[in-house]
Design a protein around this nucleic acid. Structure first.
Lengths: 225, 225
DNA sequence: AGGAAAATGGGAAGGCCGTTCCAATTAGTC
DNA sequence: GACTAATTGGAACGGCCTTCCCATTTTCCT
């Protein structure tokens, strides 16, 4: 699952692994913005060790989300392989948004680029190129509106991240409904559409809103730095 | 603009005002999650003074956003006054989202309720009731899809908050396009639609994404508490 | 098995935050 | 104008974060 680093001593490599596992868990649950100290604690390791192994926060993020980015790129390929481009298009949007919902850290990664994360950038660009092709094909079917552009994907990701951050696990499925609304917006009148996901129950939504404590890197947020 | 507190000495009232002005400015620019210390600094006042005047962070938030909530409720009334319910509906969504875009703090307030903010709750409920009526009327015109529900408003606000938080002032107009997409999704095939806002230019979007330093909240990251 | 090099973690320093306490100042009254 | 009571800002404290340093432990090669 994770490539080991070359010239590391056995114990160092072991710790590196533990740190990444801990970071993965924390990031997924609370988003980026988890302190390095917290990661160290979770990993049962000194803060210095974390800092030594991953010079900057971005290095850690890059290492942790490398495989998620692989999955992201793979989702594009999957979508392109779909015989029905419109179906591939909608499935892709849903799949990516589902990935965001499953991992708050990944949602952050997709909406805020980390410049230092060169490794991630390459795959992001790759996925983007695939998406361009997907758009072209989907438009050709006549089901995708002509004025949809690739930049809209980023907007969808940002919107979805907002919903996920705000609803948290109080109203887990909400993002599906929003994505459904958006897809309807992207579709031409005749396009085949799946039924909309159920709206969150009012009490769940309310709980989501009153959930004030919380991890938000989101705007809410404080920073990610 | 702001009601003064009853039994306060003149200087105390003056400081209270300065604190609120400072908080308003900071919250608008960076969202809730600005530290009380920062507010005190901005107001040129000791932190103790802030803490004494506003016992909890929520008290400050309530005081600061009271008038914004008035405007929110007023927007509902405006929409209901529109002779064309569908037009009123779309205008309302755009107006509220514009309010979010103009004030990041308000965007936070609308998507994360502050329980202590009793004063704000009343007006939120009021606006919600008006929105229910608006939905009924808009559906009657046949332009609003039958499966749109009031809870969708909250989802729109959360999605919009996400876009605003992520794009920041690097790609300011982006939220308009997202709202446009969503409104298309809410509309039945025959409904009259305005043209979509232009997508953000790729460089602007990229800048928005690489904008890592920041206000927070976020979203970002960290918390609001 | 033994020693050199690598790696570790705890602790110190510096920063920011929020809360609380207190001596000094200021407003408002008689 | 003087006196009382309200108000203030800074200081002190505990907490959390990050970065840096160093004595100690662990690995791995001979």
């Amino acid at each position: 699952m994770t490539e080991s680093e070359p010239g590391l001593r056995a114990d160092a490599e072991r710790n590196r692994e533990r740190i990444m596992v801990a970071a993965r868990r924390l990031y997924a649950a609370e988003g980026l913005g988890v302190s390095l100290a917290a990661v160290a604690r979770e990993a049962g390791v000194g803060k210095a060790t974390v800092a030594r192994r991953f010079a900057t926060r971005d290095d850690l993020v890059t290492a942790v989300f490398s495989d998620r980015m692989d999955a992201y790129a793979a989702a594009t390929a999957d979508a392109l392989a779909d015989p029905d481009p419109w179906h591939g298009f909608t499935r892709f949007l849903e799949a990516v948004c589902a990935m965001q919902a499953a991992d708050r850290g990944f949602a952050d990664v997709l909406t805020r680029t980390f410049p230092a994360a060169k490794g991630l950038e390459a795959r992001r660009a790759e996925a983007y190129d695939g998406f361009l092709e997907l758009i072209t094909r989907a438009k050709a079917t006549g089901h995708l509106r002509a004025d949809f552009v690739a930049e809209d994907l980023v907007l969808v990701l940002m919107a979805n991240a907002g919903v996920i951050a705000a609803t948290g696990d109080a109203a887990p499925g909400s993002w599906r409904r929003v994505v459904g609304h958006l897809i309807r917006g992207f579709a031409t009148p005749g396009a085949p559409l799946l039924p909309l996901a159920d709206p969150p129950a009012p009490p769940a939504l309310y709980r989501a809103m009153v959930r004030l404590s919380r991890p938000a890197t989101f705007s809410g947020s404080r920073d990610v730095r």
